[in-house]
């Protein structure tokens, strides 16, 4: 199969490149998946479901550090995009790996949090709050892992000199993963409504 693909992929009736348009639609569908989970969580919380006071047991510090790490990684992927726009493969490669590194730090802190909670008996089946906590952060973590794997693949691609536009696409995705976290952090760590 040639690298070029069908003509359809290269057309742009809207003026938006096809890859970017597809990414936006992917993220649109993801919004509804996370939106469904978040809406369920909020409804249970507003109903005063027992167990939701356990939100005070999550570590705001760990959550805040993770927010900082993830937001910083969004900066580094933007820098990777800026570098590849100028055709600087090596610089872009480095920034992509900074981003992957930040993802690893995020997952490390998450693992530390999970371990601590489970050792204290706060497992996924303890009550609804913890069920939501592990489901929501777990689904988010899977998105982080997926993004890191794709980033690694893209980093080697651009070194060989092709698919530069994919740096931008994974960047859009990475911002989305960030944005989900911006919703999860207050809901699961700091909100007390």
């Amino acid at each position: 199969m040639s690298m070029h693909g069908p003509i359809a992929t290269h057309r742009s009736a809207t003026g938006v490149p096809t890859g970017r348009l597809g990414t936006w639609w992917l993220l649109a569908s993801e919004i509804f998946i996370f939106g469904g989970l978040i809406a369920c969580f909020i409804l249970f919380k507003l109903n005063g479901t027992p167990g939701f006071e356990d939100a005070s047991l999550t570590s705001v510090t760990a959550g805040a550090v993770n927010t900082f790490v993830l937001l910083t990684s969004s900066l580094s992927i933007v820098l990777a995009h800026a570098a590849i726009e100028k055709g600087d493969q090596n610089k872009s490669f480095t920034y992509i790996w900074y981003t992957i590194g930040a993802g690893l730090v995020f997952l490390g802190i998450k693992t530390y949090e999970y371990t601590g909670k489970i050792l204290h008996g706060h497992t996924i089946t303890e009550n609804l709050f913890w069920s939501f906590y592990y489901t929501m952060t777990g689904l988010h973590a899977l998105h982080v892992i997926g993004g890191m794997v794709i980033m690694a693949l893209i980093s080697f691609d651009i070194r060989k000199g092709y698919n530069y536009q994919r740096v931008e696409l994974i960047g859009i995705y990475w911002h989305f993963v960030d944005l989900i976290w911006i919703f999860l952090f207050p809901l699961l760590y700091i909100a007390n409504f």
Partner: peptide, 14 residues
């Protein structure tokens, strides 16, 4: 389909 199935995917996981 995209706008309606998302919450049910979350529901199916639950």
């Amino acid at each position: 389909f995209m706008a309606s199935v998302g919450p049910l995917i979350a529901g199916a996981v639950m």
